[in-house]
């Protein structure tokens, strides 16, 4: 198996794109250890042959007609969507640059 230690917490936090302070790493590691110990209770359940249930009613995904429609329908609608973004440029979401200039 594995041990829940501070390195694991840091690794998982990195995967989740969360910055943790050293204090948080410490607290979360001990809480995570306790919670994971608790959820290991599930190991005693015999699940062989049981199909996983991911949704209470296992509905079929409803399909819509394959037709292009525009959302938002108006410029006003567009600006309402952009309004909550921290930075916009040319009517678009501004994202940080991911390719270096060199």
């Amino acid at each position: 198996m594995f041990t829940v230690n501070e390195d694991l917490t840091r690794k998982i936090a990195h995967l989740a794109r969360l910055h943790l302070t050293e204090d948080e790493v410490k607290t979360f590691t001990s809480q995570l250890r306790e919670i994971i110990n608790y959820i290991e209770l599930l190991e005693e359940v015999n699940v062989s042959g049981v199909k996983p249930l991911t949704h209470p009613f296992e509905l079929e995904t409803p399909m819509r007609e394959d037709k292009i429609s525009h959302y938002p329908k108006t410029n006003e609608g567009k600006s309402k969507i952009l309004d909550s973004a921290p930075e916009i440029l040319y009517d678009s979401f501004k994202v940080p640059s991911i390719i270096s200039g060199e």
Partner: peptide
């Protein structure tokens, strides 16, 4: 060990 098993036990609960 975690997510899949939890979904299996979810069915048993249902």
């Amino acid at each position: 060990a975690y997510y899949k098993r939890a979904c299996q036990v979810r069915r048993l609960i249902q």
